[in-house]
Design a protein around this nucleic acid. Structure first.
Length: 504
RNA sequence: GGUUCUGUGGCCGAGUGGCUAGGCUGAGCUCUGCAAAAGCUCCUACAGCGGUUCGAAUCCGCUCGGAACCUCCA
């Protein structure tokens, strides 16, 4: 049973074999930090976090590189006007790095909320200007780029002609051919500098008002949109690495351009497997700035957005993403999110019950007819976890199996099902596997809001209530429970007379 | 217009040609001092029309609808 991944390049599921045994190099396109991250951004970073975690689970040593795009022309919302008053004092002027820092911090905050493991290396575009310039010079030297008025463009047509011969035409990833694009490319600035409409910028001459600028062999300017990923992946992962990931919307032109740039420099395909996650949609439409339909992550967490009926916990969103396959679109909706919230809670509570299960004394356990199959069923469900993950990271199916285990776990807790229907080794495996999958691979967690002191106080209240109940003083017992409910602490009496609480 | 996808029950979503995931919601029952939780049971599906097949949600064709990309975009 080996890992299979869907490779966008071949449009097929392929057996995953890393280039260097035991090691995986993975590059994922990170955010452009010119604005606050929104719900759509959560998809790739949660998806690739799970992939990262799973590869580690398979005992690969993973170098996970995710860039921060902090170079380009940035404007903060609402500060545009200020920016244009160039004569103002330095401190009043928009400092690009200040902006970039602000949104980078916000991004990191959100990623932490989602419990994602930070990448091994998180290089910034501005920190790798030199590497990008060196790469551009190499492309020029190889004859696939030309300079015009202080800008440098990639010669797509020449590349396509030459590299088609070795099976790497321009458009190999997205399935486009160059002729189609010549007719459809729209008019852009400085189009007249290009030899061909499909050519893309490697380096751009900075007009006087442009604040982000660096010296280069072609004058002061800034790097083009695609070169950073080629330069940085090459630097940290080598000429050829295992996985290149990102959103489907980056396939063209971004990844296509990366492939071309790297191919010219290294004469090989940069990545073996291309993995693309699909979009989060809202009313069937991609969530994106240009559609004006974004819900920022900070808004998701607080519920402060006209489309939100309530706040959603980061773990709810993480769970929501895991419930679908990463290559399908995922439609946002309050009903769906609320469903995930409840489901996640149910799963987590069953998991907590499971962890305490061997403390239950199983006195007169009689295994009834039909129940002897349960052990086999549990083993099958658990074995399928790996099978489903190996099949292109099918987290949705793994979760479905987990939910088939939930009634069994709860049934044992409620004593509908005797504990000894499960062999000792099955119970051990069940605990171990759920822990690995829920916590280590899926990265789900539940905050321990309480802490020791609160727990002691609650235990005290529970004891008092229990005493009241035993005296049939339901006025007191209900008062305790109702008041606690108002404070967001739910009490539950289980079959054995024990009371547990959950904090909302 | 081109490229690539897609259409599953009230909602979100898995689905490798035969064994008709799963979650949420709704209905009923059990348990319970009452709750809550839990357990059990149930109702709504595969856009339409053809074709291939012993058999199709799954393959093929057509029709209709939706999306992404072709411009920065996760």
């Amino acid at each position: 049973m080996s890992l299979k991944v869907y490779n966008s390049l071949s449009r097929k599921k392929e057996d995953f074999k890393s280039i260097t045994e035991g090691h995986v190099g993975m590059y994922v396109c990170g955010p452009t930090v010119s604005g606050e991250s929104h719900l759509g951004h959560a998809r790739p970073y949660v998806t690739f976090d799970v992939i990262h975690r799973y590869l580690k689970h398979l005992n690969y040593k993973v170098r996970y590189v995710r860039n921060i795009t902090d170079a380009g022309h940035f404007e903060e919302e609402g500060r545009e006007a200020e920016d244009k008053i160039a004569k103002k004092a330095l401190l009043e002027r928009l400092e690009p790095m200040e902006l970039v820092q602000k949104y980078t911090n916000l991004f990191h905050w959100a990623m932490n909320e989602f419990n994602t493991i930070p990448p091994s290396i998180e290089p910034t575009a501005t920190g790798h200007i030199v590497e990008q310039i060196v790469m551009i010079e190499k492309i020029i030297k190889e004859g696939y780029a030309y300079e015009a008025n202080g800008s440098v463009y990639f010669d797509v047509e020449k590349y396509n002609t030459d590299f088609s011969k070795i099976g790497m035409p321009y458009g190999i990833l997205s399935g486009r051919n160059l002729e189609d694009q010549l007719d459809t490319t729209r008019e852009l600035d400085n189009q007249e500098e290009k030899r061909n409409k499909a050519d893309f910028a490697l380096w751009k001459n900075a007009p006087p008002e442009h604040i982000m600028r660096w010296p280069s062999p072609w004058g002061e300017g800034f790097p083009g949109w695609h070169i950073e990923c080629s330069a940085m992946s090459n630097k940290y992962l080598g000429e050829q690495f295992d996985i290149h990931g990102g959103g489907m919307d980056l396939q063209f032109p971004h990844h296509e351009c990366e492939i071309a740039q790297s191919a010219v420099c290294n004469h090989k395909t940069m990545a073996k497997y291309w993995i693309h996650n699909n979009m989060i949609t809202i009313n069937g439409r991609k969530m994106g700035k240009s559609y004006n339909n974004v819900i920022k992550l900070s808004e998701m967490f607080t519920g402060e957005h006209p489309l939100l009926e309530q706040a959603y916990h980061p773990m709810t969103i993480r769970f929501f993403i895991l419930q679908s396959h990463y290559r399908s679109t995922l439609d946002f909706g309050n009903e769906a999110l609320k469903g995930s919230e409840k489901a996640m809670k149910r799963l987590w509570e069953a998991y907590q019950v499971l962890l305490k299960l061997d403390e239950i004394e199983d006195t007169q356990a009689v295994v009834l007819e039909g129940e002897e199959d349960i052990d086999a069923k549990v083993n099958t469900l658990l074995a399928e976890f790996d099978e489903f993950m190996n099949d292109d990271f099918n987290t949705a199916k793994v979760l479905a199996n987990m939910f088939e285990l939930v009634p069994i776990i709860n049934g044992i807790q409620d004593k509908h099902i005797p504990l000894n229907v499960l062999k000792v080794e099955t119970l051990i495996l069940l605990k171990q596997k759920l822990k690995v999958y829920i916590e280590d691979i899926f990265g789900l967690k539940q905050e321990q809001l309480g802490g020791n002191k609160l727990d002691s106080v609650l235990q005290l209240l529970i004891t008092i209530r229990k005493e009241a109940k035993s005296k049939k003083d339901f006025v007191t017992s209900d008062k305790i429970r109702n008041e606690l409910t108002n404070l967001g602490v739910l009490l539950k009496d289980d079959k054995s007379g024990e009371t547990t609480y959950t904090i909302q």
